[in-house]
């Protein structure tokens, strides 16, 4: 029983990283209005940005968060310029395929520049344990969960309490009407895309700290997890995407408890399939639409 409980705690912690990736993903998809497959690489680059920052200035978590956010937000600008800016009025699959190509480019560039091997990222957070027996939290887990919660809270405030937030949400709901209000749709989409990518970058840093390792190809599975979590939440609904990520993490970790750790992804994606079969719209309830 203790073992299951501690696995559930691991699941919550891992799920909260997925949640942050999915929040970023939902922001991108919501504001830009086009699905992206570059998110995994954005996450990976955020992890590497924090890795080199830690080497440069020492293990300062706050500077790491800022560095990974800024680096990934910058990559977001790059992705926006290449994959979206010229294709807003084109069929959707063009920018979608463009994001797939960009993701391959970034991943292979990363393998050339950063090297193909796993890099260790040890002792960023001292190895401390709070709890009794096997049930308890490590300091890393506390930091991960706290970071995710505080970033989500900041994002919530930004989206719901500021005029920029209203502009971002207006653009995500109706680009034509937003332009009629005098909102610069292109600039606002660019900002939203960068915020979403920045959050993905921070998630990448948390992944690297949590697993104490990072590698140039980590984006593949991370991007798929982000995508799955966001799909669970209905793609553009931010709180539901976060819930989707949390569920995915918990299901994965409980799944490997009853089988083997190599089946991790099987549980995640079977769970996704089941949810989509039973409830194709995901967890999200369409708000504000008359039946």
């Amino acid at each position: 029983m203790d073992y299951y409980l501690s696995q559930a705690i691991n699941g919550i912690c891992q799920g909260s990283i997925y949640a942050l990736m999915a929040i970023g993903y939902s922001v991108v998809v919501g504001v830009v209005g086009l699905v992206t497959f570059t998110h995994g690489e954005v996450i990976m680059l955020g992890a590497f940005a924090s890795f080199y920052t830690f080497q440069l200035v020492g293990n300062n978590l706050i500077i790491g968060v800022i560095a990974s956010f800024l680096a990934s937000a910058f990559i977001g600008v790059f992705v926006f310029k290449i994959c979206y800016e010229r294709f807003f009025n084109a069929p959707r699959h063009i920018s979608l395929i463009c994001t797939i190509g960009t993701s391959m480019l970034l991943r292979n560039l990363a393998q050339i520049i950063f090297g193909p091997n796993n890099k260790p990222l040890l002792e960023v957070v001292p190895n401390r344990f709070f709890g009794q027996g096997v049930v308890g939290l490590t300091l890393v887990q506390i930091i991960v969960i706290a970071t995710v919660i505080s970033l989500s809270f900041l994002l919530f405030l930004f989206f719901n309490r500021t005029r920029w937030g209203i502009m971002l949400r207006a653009v995500s709901q109706d680009k034509t009407a937003a332009a009629m209000m005098g909102i610069n749709v292109r600039l606002t989409s660019l900002l939203g895309n960068s915020i979403g990518c920045g959050l993905g970058g921070v998630a990448g840093m948390l992944l690297a700290i949590y697993y104490q390792t990072l590698v140039a190809t980590m984006g593949g599975s991370a991007g798929m997890k982000a995508f799955s979590s966001a799909v669970l939440g209905g793609l553009t609904n931010i709180p539901s995407a976060a819930a989707g990520g949390l569920c995915l993490g918990i299901v994965e970790n409980l799944g490997i408890t009853i089988s083997s750790a190599s089946f991790r992804d099987i549980f995640a994606f079977i769970f996704l399939l089941l949810v989509l079969i039973v409830k194709p719209e995901g967890f999200a309830k369409k708000t504000g639409v008359r039946p």
Binding site: R163, I166, M167, R169, A170, Q173, D174, T176, A177, A178, M180, M181, G182, I183, T287, G288, V289
Partner: peptide, 25 residues
């Protein structure tokens, strides 16, 4: 100001937020 055919209000913004969206220019 162009009030378009088919209304084009923001469905997931509240009435108040829709009105604030009118002032962002």
């Amino acid at each position: 100001c162009h009030v378009p055919e088919g209304r084009h209000i923001f469905p997931a913004l509240s009435v108040k937020e829709n009105l604030i969206a009118g002032t962002v220019r």
